[in-house]
Computed example of a mutant assay.
Amino acid sequence: MEIGAVLKKMRMRAGYNQEQLAHELNMTQSTISKLERNRKVADFQTVMRWADTTCAKDIIIAFMLNTDVATVAHGLLQILGGLSLWTLYF
């Protein structure tokens, strides 16, 4: 999956249309469209602002780790579940 598709998924999951997200990020709708179609390259700061605004840091982390969100979430739940059980015993 390319970064543009990931950015679009993050935007859509947050319920933003391109114009709304453009307003939040102080960009044009055209820039949002170009980023989502990989016609323009997003720098790291832009990607992180996008993730913050769309509350989708989990998706961008999964993308950076080259895995899917469900796999990351499952692993975290196993770790956190183990920690919860560990605190019950001690």
Rank of each mutant, 00 (worst) to 15 (best):
L76E: 13
L65V: 07
Q45N: 11
F90R: 11
A5T: 08
A73G: 01
L35F: 15
G4W: 03
G81V: 08
K34Y: 08
R39G: 13
Q78R: 13
A5L: 06
G75P: 00
Q29A: 12
V72N: 01
R39V: 10
A73V: 14
F44V: 12
D58Y: 07
T31F: 03
I59W: 05
V69P: 10
D58H: 11
L7M: 06
G75S: 09
T71G: 05
M27V: 09
I59C: 02
S84P: 00
A73I: 13
Q18S: 13
A70S: 12
R49G: 00
R37M: 10
T46G: 03
A42N: 04
R39M: 14
G81R: 05
Y89K: 13
V69N: 06
T87F: 12
E19A: 12
Y89R: 12
N66G: 09
T31D: 05
L77W: 06
G15Y: 02
T53P: 00
T28S: 15
L77F: 10
I32F: 04
F90H: 15
T54D: 01
L35G: 13
W86C: 04
T67R: 10
F90P: 04
L35Y: 15
K40G: 03
L65F: 12
N38C: 07
H23C: 02
M64G: 11
H23N: 06
